[in-house]
Design a binder for these strands. Structure first.
Lengths: 258, 258
DNA sequence: CGTTTCGTTGAAGAGTGTCAAGGCCAGTGG
DNA sequence: CCACTGGCCTTGACACTCTTCAACGAAACG
């Protein structure tokens, strides 16, 4: 009995052992509650690099928790323009777009071989409507996504190319760090074109700005390999301050009214 | 009994009589269910033009359903850049940003005198965790917001000024229409600067593009008053097609008044 | 090892932003 | 009632960022 249970959960899911637990479930849960959540995870699924987890128009049945890998979400306009709306890393939840109308409204593509936990929304609904804490937690996940997108709108609506890229690199850095990887050295899983799409820039601009950062000693780039040398400098760029270069000692800088 | 109940609900809320019901509650609900929802609405609140419904940093307690009026949401970056993230009209739900961390992460300002229903989130949580259909419905509201923002990211990331403005006008038109107003003639409640912020453009660009549309016979503008003369032409612009320029203002299209 | 995809860099040009001047309108006080 | 004021809108000239086009080099892949 006990044995079979242990072996079962070990075989099947074992959220309780998952090193991503803190990312998926940032709540204090009792063991009993965790068990219920483990019941929710029906299967795992592997997606090879370049393949789709789902596509626009697919019926929505499941949410997905990323165990391992890297994906992008893209939306496409009627005339074929594509926009990358986000990059997803281990521990993040994907598929929220489908809840709105039971049909997915974006493509999610693996940028490297990826493994996800499949969470049937029906079961999620049972849990969120029977455990108040999980109901609230799920609301928070959705709301967090809304708030995150506010930040992207700010970026797309009011930042220059350099500011966008600096913000992008810092964001990646922070996310890698919170997953236990180096915050100063990582590999970009996406192409320049995909970065550009995400940031509202053309791939040439992305390349040029990265080169400029590299030339200014802020980062070191070699194809997909990036090393952050001066995070403070990047942060200054995001805040709109020009890095004090060459012969121009920064005089009293730009005040925006309080 | 019956009398007191009727008078009570008439005095207090009466979602069942609210002409916005279809916007707030796009579900088939039993009378009993609607009654429960009416219990959720605690009070009304009026906000004068220019005042805030809430501000960044305010503690999150309530969601708000707009009964009447017009508002904007804005986020601000650390260095003071402001971005309008949405405009809100009657029947829409505001405050979802606060769920993420119990603190609001944007400002919501009335652009005209506004009245909202106050929905305490705690009560919302009770209902969503006890009525499965409401739980799902609330998820849908949140998810719809995420999908809507995908569209804005597409706009900000890959459209030209003319395309953005055309999309913006068509969006407003459609929303006015679904509220029973004219889809071809309306008053902008926001300034050029606010439109610009929302669309990632400067106010001068907004003004210029509107003038160009007017010159091309697509719309008629007089300060805040806008009349759409050729919606098909605007749609063509959104789709990236150049309006076949020159002397041909193809206007084989829509009916004006409802 | 050839082929393809991806990345870098340059030169030229388009699209927006910036700065500045002036017009329109509503509200205010004489 | 009028003049005044301040906020909002329009328009022009010019500057500048980013895109476009093009060529080439570097890595990835079968």
């Amino acid at each position: 009995m006990t044995t079979s249970k242990i072996s079962l959960s070990a075989l099947r899911v074992a959220c309780s052992n998952c090193n991503l637990r803190e990312l998926c479930l940032p709540l204090r849960l009792s063991l009993k509650e965790i068990e219920r959540i483990e019941d929710m995870v029906s299967t795992r699924k592997r997606i090879k690099r370049g393949e789709a987890l789902y596509r626009t128009g697919d019926h929505f049945d499941n949410l997905f928790a990323i165990r391992l890998g890297f994906l992008k979400s893209t939306v496409m306009s009627s005339d074929g323009r594509e926009q990358v709306t986000s990059f997803h890393m281990a521990g993040e939840l994907v598929g929220l777009d489908g809840i709105a109308s039971d049909v997915h409204s974006c493509d999610v593509i693996a940028l490297e071989d990826t493994e996800v936990c499949v969470l049937p929304y029906e079961r999620m609904l049972e849990i969120t409507t029977s455990m108040r804490s999980m109901g609230q937690h799920f609301h928070k996940i959705l709301s967090r996504e809304i708030v995150r997108q506010h930040g992207i709108m700010l970026l797309l609506g009011s930042m220059h190319a350099e500011e966008r890229l600096a913000a992008f690199l810092l964001n990646l850095s922070q996310r890698f760090e919170s997953r236990g990887y180096s915050r100063s050295e990582f590999v970009l899983r996406m192409t320049r074109a995909e970065i550009g799409s995400y940031l509202g820039l053309k791939l040439e601009t992305v390349s040029r700005v990265l080169s400029r950062f590299s030339h200014d000693g802020l980062i070191q780039v070699n194809q997909k390999h990036v090393q952050i040398l001066n995070a403070t400098g990047l942060r200054a760029i995001v805040s709109g301050q020009q890095p004090l270069d060459g012969e121009e000692p920064f005089d009293d800088d730009i005040r925006l009214d309080p």
